[in-house]
Each structure stands twice: as C-alpha cells, then as structure tokens.
Simulated assay, not measured.
Amino acid sequence: MRALSLCLLAGSLTLTGCSLLQSKPAPTQEPAKMIEPAAPEKPAHTAPRPSPVKLYQNAEELVGKPFRDLGEVSGSVCQTTSQGNAPSLTTARKRMLTKAAGMKANAVLLHQCVVLSDSNGCYRQALCQGSALNVSEQ
C-alpha cells in the first residue's frame, strides 16, 4: 500500500514539474487603435419647450384680433389630505397653459380659477379652465 502511495505521489510531482517547465506563449502585440472622441451626450430631459402661450384675463382684450377657438383646456392641482401641501392656483394655471401649448394654441382666454373643497377625491383642488386659442397677429 505504501508503495502505491509513493508511486502516485511521485507521478503527481512529475506532472506538476512538467507543467512548470512549459513556457507561456508571448503575448501578441495588437496594433494601436484610434480612439474616437465620444459624441457629447444629450441631456436626459430634452423635451422641446412649448412656445409661450399668452393668457388673456377677459374677452375684451381680444377685440379686433382674429382668432380661432381650439377647444376647452383645464389645469388642476390636488391636495389629497388635510396635512398635504395647499393646492396652488399658479401651478394649475401653468398646467392649463401647457395643455394649450400641446394643442398648438398661442393663447388662452381664462374662464375661471377656483379652489374647490372635497371634489374628485381631493381634500382641496385648485382648478383653472379656459379656451385654447390661435390668435393671429396683424
């Protein structure tokens, strides 16, 4: 049994010794590659800004100006609980103007901006409504 163990030990040492004697192949030199400069990255939020939409407070401001009515628009802000941030009429108005810009309007005739209580699942809601218009400048 000892003889068999010695033979196996001698054989494994011989194999290990042979593998240590082998030389590793020399690494091949690859030709240098030209690194092209990276294109400048575009910002993640590159949504085109809508053209400014003018807000008309009353219909008298439109007298003498040709315009086309594109439909009703509204913007709202919801305060879900009594501890939440109070709804802002300014934010509701901005959302209304943004929707009008999406309709290709360049003006909005404001009908009303109000703060409502207990409506549409909101504790309080700021709501602005108006008509989206395309006003021609002469």
Rank of each mutant, 00 (worst) to 15 (best):
M1K: 12
R2P: 01
A3G: 05
L4H: 04
C7E: 12
L8Q: 06
L8S: 04
L9D: 04
L9Q: 13
G11S: 13
S12C: 14
L13F: 12
L13C: 12
T16Y: 12
S19D: 10
L21V: 04
S23Y: 12
S23H: 10
K24P: 05
P25K: 11
A26M: 14
P27F: 01
T28L: 15
T28K: 14
T28M: 14
E30H: 00
P31H: 06
P31S: 12
P31I: 07
P31W: 13
P31K: 06
A32I: 12
A32K: 09
I35E: 15
E36Q: 00
E36W: 07
E36Y: 09
E36V: 03
A38I: 13
A39P: 09
P40Y: 13
E41K: 15
E41V: 15
E41D: 09
K42H: 08
A44H: 03
T46K: 13
A47C: 07
P48F: 02
R49C: 09
P50E: 08
P50N: 11
P50L: 13
S51V: 11
V53T: 02
K54S: 06
K54L: 09
K54A: 09
L55M: 08
L55Q: 09
L55R: 10
L55Y: 04
Y56E: 02
Q57Y: 11
Q57H: 09
N58G: 00
A59D: 01
E61D: 07
E61Q: 15
V63T: 13
G64A: 03
G64I: 04
K65L: 06
K65H: 07
F67Q: 05
R68I: 14
D69N: 14
D69K: 06
L70D: 08
L70S: 06
G71W: 03
G71N: 08
V73M: 07
S74N: 14
G75V: 01
G75A: 00
V77Q: 12
C78E: 11
T80D: 09
T80Y: 11
Q83K: 03
G84N: 13
G84H: 08
N85F: 03
A86P: 09
S88W: 08
L89R: 01
T91S: 08
T91P: 00
A92Q: 02
A92E: 00
R93D: 00
K94I: 02
M96G: 03
T98Q: 07
T98Y: 07
T98C: 04
T98E: 15
A100L: 00
A101H: 04
A101C: 10
G102M: 10
G102C: 05
M103F: 04
M103H: 06
M103D: 06
M103K: 11
M103T: 03
K104C: 03
K104R: 12
A105C: 06
V108W: 00
V108S: 01
L110A: 02
L110W: 04
H111T: 10
H111Q: 13
C113S: 11
V114M: 01
V114W: 03
V115W: 00
V115F: 05
L116V: 01
L116G: 01
S117P: 09
D118M: 01
S119V: 13
S119N: 06
N120Q: 15
G121F: 10
C122M: 07
C122Q: 08
C122L: 02
R124Q: 15
Q125A: 07
A126H: 02
A126I: 02
L127S: 05
L127Y: 08
C128N: 06
Q138A: 13
